[in-house]
Simulated assay, not measured.
Amino acid sequence: MGLLDRGVEIKSPEQIDLMRRAGLVVGQTLELLRASVRAGISTGELDAIAEDNIRSSGATPSFKGYHGFPGSICASVNDEVVHGIPGGRVLAEGDVISIDCGAIVDGWHGDAAITVAVGAVPPEVSELMRVTEESMWRGIAAARLGGRVTDISHAVERHVRGQGRYGILEDYTGHGIGSEMHMAPNVPNYGRPGKGPKLVEGIALAVEPMLTLGSKHTELLEDDWTVVSEDGSWAAHFEHTFTLTSTGTWVLTALDGGEAALSALGVPFGGR
Score class of each variant (00 low, 15 high):
45 E>H: 02
239 E>D: 13
185 P>H: 02
128 L>E: 14
7 G>F: 05
169 L>R: 05
152 I>G: 00
149 V>M: 13
130 R>E: 10
73 I>P: 00
188 P>E: 09
65 G>F: 06
37 V>I: 13
110 G>P: 13
157 E>G: 00
118 V>G: 03
42 S>F: 07
21 R>T: 08
126 S>W: 12
113 A>W: 01
169 L>C: 13
53 N>P: 01
245 T>S: 06
220 L>N: 05
8 V>A: 01
33 L>Q: 03
8 V>C: 03
219 E>K: 15
239 E>H: 14
14 E>D: 12
231 D>S: 09
86 P>N: 09
151 D>E: 11
159 H>Q: 01
240 H>S: 07
191 G>D: 14
3 L>K: 06
92 A>M: 12
171 D>V: 14
250 W>T: 00
147 G>F: 10
262 L>A: 06
3 L>M: 10
154 H>W: 15
173 T>E: 08
219 E>R: 15
158 R>V: 06
67 H>Q: 09
199 L>S: 04
121 V>G: 05
116 V>H: 02
264 A>W: 00
216 K>W: 12
89 R>A: 06
106 D>E: 15
60 T>A: 08
252 L>W: 11
12 S>K: 13
52 D>I: 12
84 G>Q: 03
200 V>N: 03
177 I>F: 04
99 I>H: 08
25 V>L: 03
196 G>L: 05
59 A>Y: 12
248 G>Q: 06
222 E>F: 10
192 R>S: 14
270 G>Y: 09
247 T>C: 07
261 A>L: 14
134 E>A: 00
136 M>I: 00
97 I>G: 03
116 V>M: 01
155 A>G: 09
195 K>L: 15
225 W>V: 02
241 T>C: 08
142 A>M: 04
57 S>F: 11
150 T>E: 10
36 S>E: 11
271 G>S: 00
261 A>I: 07
211 L>T: 00
170 E>T: 15
247 T>R: 15
113 A>C: 06
256 D>K: 09
240 H>D: 14
17 D>K: 15
248 G>H: 08
1 M>V: 13
68 G>R: 06
187 V>K: 04
55 R>F: 09
187 V>N: 08
120 A>Q: 14
45 E>I: 00
23 G>D: 04
235 A>M: 07
104 I>E: 12
142 A>T: 10
75 A>C: 08
109 H>F: 12
94 G>K: 11
47 D>C: 11
9 E>K: 08
58 G>Y: 11
101 C>A: 11
265 L>S: 02
34 R>L: 10
106 D>A: 15
147 G>W: 12
7 G>E: 11
190 Y>N: 12
125 V>Y: 15
90 V>N: 01
186 N>V: 08
65 G>V: 05
152 I>Q: 01
207 V>D: 02
245 T>M: 09
242 F>P: 09
69 F>V: 01
177 I>D: 05
127 E>T: 15
44 G>F: 02
2 G>R: 10
12 S>T: 15
114 I>W: 09
267 V>D: 00
84 G>N: 02
192 R>A: 13
164 G>H: 15
87 G>I: 02
11 K>D: 04
84 G>S: 07
27 G>S: 02
208 E>V: 07
